[in-house]
């Protein structure tokens, strides 16, 4: 065990963190924009957003390969003009994690924004608040528990992403070997000790993330939902 490289841990956290940030902002923005609007084609667009949830990750990976392959339009354009190689690079892993995790954030954020009472936002408008201020001070704090759940699910899903990542980023030790990859290829060569080590690490990461979410929710949400024992916040 002494010769285990911690590269997969660092790469997994880097990939998951970047994918989570991208997914959090795009998912939140789109969910907010779609939450109370009805327009033709909305159902089709939402179905497209949620598609990675029901497709096998290998299919998602195949699609990404078609989009970002070095000889494909988008991949060629990125390589020629931005000198970015997506296939067989850690950027490919970020894109795979982003696409696969996006539906979880979108669904959580969408449900969270739909639960915010529209009357509260209307009341804020009548008090002179702009759309941005209403979003920042009313919708966002009230939807925050749902957004946070989406954030945690996104991070966990991105951390565990395997199929699509294998298709687009491959397994290149030191470059694209995330923890799930390291587990799979350790088992393939019969190195059960290394596989067990990475399994313990990823279970611990997932478990501590969920524990933190529960702790945070209890600490912050009880304040304005549960009456205090032995009294309230009234002055004597």
């Amino acid at each position: 065990m002494g010769d285990i490289s911690y590269g997969p841990l660092i790469l997994s956290i880097k990939v998951a963190a970047i994918a989570t940030i991208i997914v959090f902002f795009t998912g939140t923005f789109l969910a907010r924009a779609f939450a109370r609007k009805q327009f033709p084609g909305k159902t089709i667009i939402e179905a497209f957003f949620l598609l990675p949830l029901v497709l096998p990750p290998t299919v998602v990976g195949f699609g990404l390969l078609i989009l970002f392959g070095k000889d494909q339009f988008l991949g060629k354009w990125l390589y020629d003009y931005a000198h970015l190689q997506i296939v067989f690079s850690w950027l490919g892993a970020v894109i795979a994690s982003t696409v696969v995790a996006f539906p979880l954030m979108y669904q959580s954020a969408s449900a969270a924004f739909k639960q915010v009472d529209g009357k509260l936002e209307a009341a804020a408008h009548t008090l002179g608040a702009s759309k941005w201020r209403v979003f920042r001070t009313i919708a966002l704090p009230l939807a925050w528990p749902g957004l946070l759940a989406g954030l945690v699910l996104t991070f966990a899903r991105a951390l565990g992403e395997f199929g699509a990542t294998l298709m687009i980023a491959g397994y290149i030790p030191g470059r694209t070997d995330t923890i799930p990859m390291a587990i799979y290829f350790a088992v393939e060569v019969g190195d059960m000790n290394t596989a067990t080590f990475w399994v313990i690490i990823i279970v611990a990461l997932g478990f501590s993330t969920i524990l933190w979410l529960s702790w945070w929710s209890n600490r912050n949400l009880r304040r304005f939902t549960v009456k205090r024992k032995g009294g309230t916040n009234r002055d004597a």
């Binding site: 009472d117 009357k119 509260l120 209307a122 009341a123 804020a124 408008h125 009548t126 008090l127 002179g128 608040a129 702009s130 009313i138 704090p141 009230l142 304005f224 939902t225 916040n233």
Partner: peptide, 22 residues
């Protein structure tokens, strides 16, 4: 004229107090 610029005070039926604010 947008609602936020009308300067109309509106007390709604269920008061619509912001639950996360004192």
């Amino acid at each position: 004229f947008p609602a936020e610029k009308r300067n109309v005070g509106y007390v709604m039926q269920d008061y619509a107090l912001f639950p996360h604010m004192t």
